[in-house]
Design a protein around this nucleic acid. Sequence first.
DNA 1: TCGGAAATAT
DNA 2: GATATTTCCG
Length: 387
Amino acid sequence: MGLVHQELSLDFGPTFIPKTITNFLKELSLIGNVSDKASKLDAILKGLEDEMKKIDAFKRELPLCMLLLNDAIVALKEESTQCMTRNVEPVLEEFIPLKNKEGNDQSEEDGSLITTKKEEHSNNNCSNYKDKKNWMSSVQLWNTDDDDYCSTDHNLDTKGNYGDPCKDRGGTGAFLPFKANAVRKEEKKVMPIPGLTFLTPGIKNLRQESGSTGSRTSCSRAISCSATNARSNFQSVPPAVLSDHYQQQQQTSRKQRRCWSPELHRRFVDALQQLGGSQVATPKQIRELMQVDGLTNDEVKSHLQKYRLHSRRLPVTTSTLGSGHARMSEDQYGESSKGSSSQSGSPQGPLQLATNTRGDSMEDDGDAKSECYSGKSQAQKPGKTDV
DNA sequence: TCGGAAATAT
DNA sequence: GATATTTCCG
């Protein structure tokens, strides 16, 4: 009790070793005396409730903590109630045949009646313990790498190699691994909190999901769409929890940005050339030609879109734009001058590699604008056409 | 599946 | 604020 209490306290020292509720219940099941059991339960309950009060001030920051605590409290209360109930149960029940007595320590003590009751208790606790175990696993929002992770998110990519982009052809750095791959993996595992429906895709998204798209999956979709549809799907959730989870989802649901490294872009351009130019090539074709593991149609499409955009908005008139960098017609991006990607000028297309203009340290670019190439700082900044 | 555009992130 | 990337929409 005091033990548990202490463990649940935030003031634990470095030697603190967490005792799970599972363990607690296990221990509890070994206690024969009902009142002992009840008092222990009460103690831990009190501890949990105290804890709840403590983090109450942080409930916005620690929504999951609140939920976990709450769940624990509810479960223990339940246990407590059962305990009490059993305590006043009619003798009648004590004669119910017991099975699975293994592991019960009802040996000692006296009176047959008491013993029987104990047996039943132990047994009951055993199943309760099991239940609690299940409960514990159900509230465990992390771990177990191998289970529910949305494998489809990977499988539907070209080679299912999503998680390990570095495998890609000899580590040429075709593209940079997602910095937050692992994080994403975990993010996706965040289980829906009972009662929250934010994972339910909106109708629109369902429509899309029903399509045979290979780039995104229902899982990631469901989560990602949650960001945008969350507001409408949160109706039945208490505002506080809602906003917390909404924020959390928003933070974690978005797809990791694809980093178009120079090498990756080069492949893109190569593919483009093989396909006859950006205006005729389709994302799927490009992606297939690029043969980059983990690259999705959407990513290619997006890149292509940008590429086209730049090509388009960089008409020949650009001579007036000075600096001659990236302000050129598509031809000059090497697209029409196939295979000449090593041309003197701007071999990389509208989206010039920074290497052309600032050495070759574009990939580092950890900070700022995320893009791995583009050298946009020096290159053109064509006013947005419209959009 | 695609193109275009809005939304969002950097 | 500009640009890159993701997401949505038709």
